Simulated assay, not measured.
Amino acid sequence: MKKKYSRTEDEILALNGSYEYDEVIYDNIFSLFSGFYDNYTELADDEKLMKMFSIDRGSIKRDVREDYVAESGIIHSGSYGTESDITNKTTKRVVYRRNQDDADIKQFHYMIYVPNDVEGNEIVKGMLMFETIGTFGVKTISVNNMKKFFSEKYGLTMETRSISVRIFIENLLKKDKLKRVTLIKNSVSRDSSDNMFLNIGREEKTYIKPTLKESWITKLLEHLDGRSSEDIFEINDEVYEDIQLSFLHAGRTKTVRLNNIDKFSMVEDVPDYVFIDAYIIFSDFFGIIPRKFKLC
């Protein structure tokens, strides 16, 4: 979170600290989210996405620990706009005819996780986790509503990115799942006749199933971590504005551009090895056994 229109790191909000806006003081990030919950206790209609959205205020739970604070709840959401027949799988009979105004509302669990400040270091990043059910999820509509609400009510800009991008890309590059690398740069033709109407073009150089050097992988990961101060990529003495990676994941081909990495998201199954502990933790905290979650 940072103040709207701010350009410096000093304007980033400490998640565990207080924040004052319009003469109202909020204790911490969870106080801000409390206002968000109150605003969405009734189903809101997002006509652009054709989805309904609300928060079950009575489902909110907070777990305060020595190292962190976690808050969970239930989101009610569903889409509308299409007609369909609700059919009983056993009798094969249509039990209900769904029209365009009928929204298929489902319950999705979510969690907000914020570490406590350590040795005077203020925490400015937390974690959001959203449950998905089959092909249905609530990450996009939830984050959109959060960003809009925090901007209008608190004067804050909320920034999100997938927390698993760096680790995922690193594993991807080292497990031979990379199918294609495309290097992209702006290019001006040496032939002046080509520039009569367009003074710039785009050049793409694609490598199929490439084997990458360790030094190049390290440089790429530094860009993902934000440790590189450069906005361009220099490869073999040539300058590129963007790099596009295509890879196999869960049987599908996905493509990500590094300059658009902040909008990249992954759906991750809860690993089998955590299910023993997860059974205890999630059943106690959520009241459910984890299915699938999207990390933001």
Rank of each mutant, 00 (worst) to 15 (best):
S79R: 14
G226T: 01
R62I: 09
E119T: 04
E238L: 08
N260C: 06
I288N: 10
R161G: 07
R161I: 05
I235Q: 04
T206A: 14
I133H: 04
W216A: 15
K174V: 05
K92V: 02
M127E: 05
S228L: 07
S228C: 05
R291L: 11
A278G: 04
E47K: 15
I184V: 06
M196H: 03
M158R: 01
E159M: 10
A70E: 09
M196R: 05
I200R: 07
S164M: 10
V256Y: 06
E119I: 04
K153F: 05
G73C: 02
S246H: 08
A14E: 07
I280Y: 15
T82A: 10
S59A: 14
K185H: 01
R180S: 04
D277S: 13
S192N: 01
I276F: 06
W216F: 15
S34F: 07
Y68Q: 07
I167E: 12
P271E: 10
E23Y: 11
F150I: 00
F286E: 05
F247W: 11
Y273H: 05
S164A: 09
T90Y: 12
P290S: 11
G58Y: 03
A278S: 07
L128R: 05
I123H: 05
E66W: 03
L172I: 06
F282N: 07
Y37M: 04
T211L: 12
S31Y: 00
K209Q: 12
E47T: 15
D225H: 03
D104I: 02
D269L: 10
N16M: 13
Y19A: 08
P271D: 11
K185Y: 00
R7C: 13
Y5Q: 11
P115F: 02
R257E: 14
S31E: 02
H109T: 08
K139P: 02
F247S: 08
F247D: 08
N260Q: 12
S283D: 02
V95K: 03
K153E: 14
I289W: 09
I141T: 00
N39K: 14
V270D: 09
T8Q: 13
L224R: 01
D225S: 08
I25N: 14
D231V: 06
E131I: 10
I232K: 07
F33S: 05
H249D: 14
I243F: 02
P271Y: 12
Y5G: 10
S162Q: 04
V95D: 08
I184F: 00
L245I: 11
I200F: 08
S77Y: 10
V267M: 09
E152D: 13
V118Y: 03
D237F: 03
E42V: 12
S34E: 14
Q107N: 12
D225V: 00
R227G: 00
G17R: 15
I12L: 07
E241P: 01
M127R: 10
L198Y: 03
N88C: 09
M52W: 01
I29T: 09
S6E: 14
Q244M: 09
S229D: 02
I243P: 01
H223A: 04
